[in-house]
Design a protein around this nucleic acid. Sequence first.
DNA 1: ATCAATCGGAATGATTCGCTCCGTTTGAAA
DNA 2: TTTCAAACGGAGCGAATCATTCCGATTGAT
Lengths: 223, 223
Amino acid sequence: MTPMTPADRRAPRQAEAERNDRALLQAAKEVLAVDGAHASVAAIAKRAKVGIGTLYRRYRTKDDLFLHLLSVTLDQYLEAAEAGLALDDPWEGLAHYVRAVIGFGPGSLAPIAGTLTLTAEINEKSEHGDRAVAALIERAHDAGVLRADATAMDVELLIEQLSKSPLLDQLAQQGRTELMPAAQNARDRLTAIALDGLRAGSSPPLPGEPPGYELFSARWERD
Amino acid sequence: MTPMTPADRRAPRQAEAERNDRALLQAAKEVLAVDGAHASVAAIAKRAKVGIGTLYRRYRTKDDLFLHLLSVTLDQYLEAAEAGLALDDPWEGLAHYVRAVIGFGPGSLAPIAGTLTLTAEINEKSEHGDRAVAALIERAHDAGVLRADATAMDVELLIEQLSKSPLLDQLAQQGRTELMPAAQNARDRLTAIALDGLRAGSSPPLPGEPPGYELFSARWERD
DNA sequence: ATCAATCGGAATGATTCGCTCCGTTTGAAA
DNA sequence: TTTCAAACGGAGCGAATCATTCCGATTGAT
């Protein structure tokens, strides 16, 4: 067997560390959904069933953790958009993206994004995702399956609105796990209703003017 | 002029006091929407542009303020439901209720209700409102204008989902008042989309089983 | 000019915060 | 079996924030 200097040692507990990392990100997502910008590191560590020290060995600061969570979440969004584009049916492609993003978990991260100084990497991922979603929506419009008066902003705002579930968040915090499948199902029904409302059909036109992009960008600016 | 003992004196600054009371309730609603259960009295007083002392002269404790807010909000809900029932058209009646409740402001109070010990008066108001909504929905079902597979729970959950607007809350907190009309309009469009999805039509059936009432009642129980 | 009513916010003690530090546990290599 | 780098949990620290109290300033009808 090859001799091994102490510095060369392979990490012996690497598997546990990886599991903890995933648990931390999941816990951060859940606590953020319930507590908003006031979410505390102690609450996150507790929900992840991990010591505070473990959290701080992996992330230099609280903001570091949030930025990392934001980054991996944007990756998931992009992945869902590309999976949608890979589907042949334009409507099913859009619906897949909507369902996937809503299902990712407890909601939009925009409220905390406003409290962070975003990195260039994150801004780039965000724009990349926006382009993919725009393509998804343009394709649905061209196929005539998405109601003509609904813009990309409308769809994105609708997703944000549905992606945070007060009901699921509260049940999660109370530990009422036995009710959560029913709550998930209830949320799926609401998603289906909303998607139904987005389909092209004999509907009265949407009120007012389409929302402008400034509504979206304003949210990611530092206060 | 009638003589007047000191104890009989009419309140000289009553108008200002009333204005402050309204401002406090409005501010409490807004801060609760953004900060959730962690909302602080200092933040509420500041948003209402009122001293902390003023808040505590009117409400004995923080919980007292929240209970009062809950009470007047339930009154508004009931009023909206009865206004909907007063309309002849069953669909317009339901739509009016949905639009009104969503428009009342920054969202459901369920998350804080779980942290309070509710009074009998509040429980009664809640049940009273539920009965009115059930009547509204039954009438729409009977008229065949509400999709048959959507239950009262579906509608109530949809309302809750739409009644909290992260976008409006964030803009309000940032003081970006110039963008708020556009954000309001964007929200109205989402409401229209959702109502469209609720209308009876040639839609695929909703997935899974209808949500049970236990999902609703679980939220109002003390932890 | 008076004074009860109402106001704003400093002060307080308790709590919670982000974060550091350190003693303990783990398990592959020797 | 012994060793020890790596990963762990959580007590503890100073700063910040919490709900609430208390009191001096302001107001405006008399």
